[in-house]
Nucleic acid binder design. Structure first.
Lengths: 345, 345
DNA sequence: CTGAAAGCGCTTACAG
DNA sequence: CTGAAAGCGCTTACAG
């Protein structure tokens, strides 16, 4: 088969100059309408597509966004955080809708991603999706800023004000979850999830939890908080630690659904009934949540909307427009793990 | 901040020509080792990255793969087939391991994707992931072939021999699933899923099912087969149709986990006990499968391995190497929905 | 409205 | 081992 058609081939066939072809294909009003249409027809016939490399090189942009998904290094290779997967879906769609392409890459937090895509002119902007330990890559973000890269990070507000972050209101989510459990009559609510500043999102959920307790006059009991990272195994382990501690509790709010599912497994194994003896509320509303047994009451983050906002924001950054921090409201999804009287599917 | 460094900047600092810089950065042995190292050091210091657009334009390749995920148009926008998501994860990793970038795009089967990425020189090859109705895009594949595009499709063997497909052995999967149910003493096994050639993967699972029945002297009863596409809702509906038909059955094998989950919901709603009265086996082993209630016995496709093979295959195609059709073995994951005596987590 | 020309930043034959 | 030069396929200021 013949090699790809170029604008010169079209120019030859149309009997005009290559410049005119280029203009016509970009639908420039400078070109006579009739000529334009003729050229476009030929292009279509030849199945011509503008060479993006040449075009990008010349225009100095790529009409491409890069999505870097930074995983917990502790996470099993084969198991991507389902919440990210969902975000990926919505980001892909939103990017396409804006006429951009999306380069996707999974990164270990440890690797040297700080300067790759935008530097090599493959992407005009970067979206960072990462749950784990933000401290670890603070200096990498600094590097991005220093280099004037256009990027948005998903998650908690960053202490470096130059970093644009878009995320769900974790504090509100934590507050609502705990408020719900309190409303159901629970008094001793444990929290499973890292509460340190190393996991700002989990920490904010924890702080919301603490505030909800305080708003009804209950002081958070540190014995009821146990660290866990975002895996089922970690939730299983943390619940066992909690159980072993002998401290009384009648409910658990976990920093993620995966943790909740692990915790429920631990509770069941010890013969603790969920929700009769211990109510559980998770966070994320991953697909598995509604199929857990009992079905998980959880805090839903609207990934569809979040993806759109994320894409829209990088694009604004790229265009030099004003963008601001943004907190997306979460909402409670009541199923049966909390003991509220709801019929599951 | 200053604009991006180019090879000329480096040449200037190093006191050599730009050509030498280019060679040195590609680690050409033609360049004196010492000079090479000096240049590389300067490049590092300036945080220089080769401009991919320029490089690709010159080299006429992109070191990029495109992944087109073609969704069932019937599928809800927000809900991506979890199996694809899993494939996406493994393909992303495999691509990165090979030093390629991955462009991801979700496509409606209806849209005009046939000529995009490779034509515009954005990708060297394409991986097609699509469950739905292959007939619909047969002519698009023809177009790809005609244009000499490097691509692999995931799924059933294609009747057009020029199409390279990599997929799991659906016939074997269907056979093993049904064999398992037969082994548990079930005699009237229904099949939920499209059995027409419009869904070659589902059809092959069905044929495996039929063959397993025949191998024990049972003739497949067409009254026990009901069409369903790959959604929970469709499975719910198909199970109801089956139930309404009044035909006796003691087990269901479904063409996908999503269908199985919908079917179980329908059975439960009618007061049919799973697995006591009706055993169920699904297909795919999506993450939700182990959390379904009862936990789903299913046929697992090794997405990790499949992703690697897929990437490896396009790459071979690109390099002009020999590649052949490939069927990946599936295996049975026994949980409790089939009634086998297994303890779930 | 159209064309000739420059140039985006590389890679690589060609000549030394 | 190194440099000068061509050229990948576009876009766009400049001149008409």
């Amino acid at each position: 088969m013949a090699s790809k058609a170029t604008s010169i081939d079209i120019a030859y066939r149309a009997g005009v100059s290559q410049s005119t072809v280029s203009r016509a294909l970009r639908n420039s009003p400078l070109v006579n309408l009739e000529t334009r249409q003729r050229i476009q027809a030929i292009a279509k016939e030849l199945n011509y597509k503008v060479d993006k490399n040449a075009s990008n090189l010349r225009m100095q942009n790529s009409h491409t966004l890069a999505l870097l998904i930074c995983e917990d290094p502790t996470n099993d290779e084969s198991m991507i955080n389902p919440f990210f997967l969902s975000m990926l879906g919505s980001i892909t769609r939103a990017t396409a809708r804006q006429g951009y392409d999306l380069l996707v890459s999974f990164q270990q937090l440890s690797t040297d991603w700080h300067a790759d895509y935008e530097d090599s002119n493959k992407a005009d902007g970067i979206i960072l999706l990462g749950y784990g330990d933000y401290m670890d890559y603070a200096h990498k973000l600094d590097k991005l800023i220093e280099k004037n890269t256009h990027f948005v990070i998903w998650g908690a507000e960053h202490n470096n004000k130059a970093v644009l972050s878009i995320g769900c209101d974790n504090h509100q989510g934590g507050f609502v979850a705990t408020e719900h459990l309190l409303g159901l009559g629970h008094k001793h609510i444990a929290f499973l999830g890292d509460s340190s500043s190393r996991s700002p999102e989990f920490r904010d959920r924890y702080l919301g939890h603490v505030d909800a307790l305080q708003s009804t006059g209950i002081e958070a009991d540190t014995q009821l908080q146990h660290d866990a990272i975002n895996t089922e195994a970690s939730g299983y382990h943390a619940a066992n630690v909690l159980l072993d501690s002998g401290v009384t509790f009648d409910a658990i709010f976990t920093a993620s659904d995966l943790i909740a599912i692990g915790a429920i497994r631990a509770l069941k194994k010890r013969g603790v009934l969920v929700p009769e003896q211990v109510a559980v509320v998770g966070y994320d509303d991953i697909p598995v949540a509604s199929f857990a047994n009992p079905a998980l009451t959880t805090i839903k983050q609207d990934t569809q909307f979040a993806g759109e906002i994320l894409v829209e924001s990088v694009l604004k950054l790229i265009r030099g427009q004003e963008v601001s921090q943004r907190l997306i409201k979460t909402h409670l999804v009541v199923r049966s793990s909390c003991g509220a009287n709801v019929e599951d599917n």
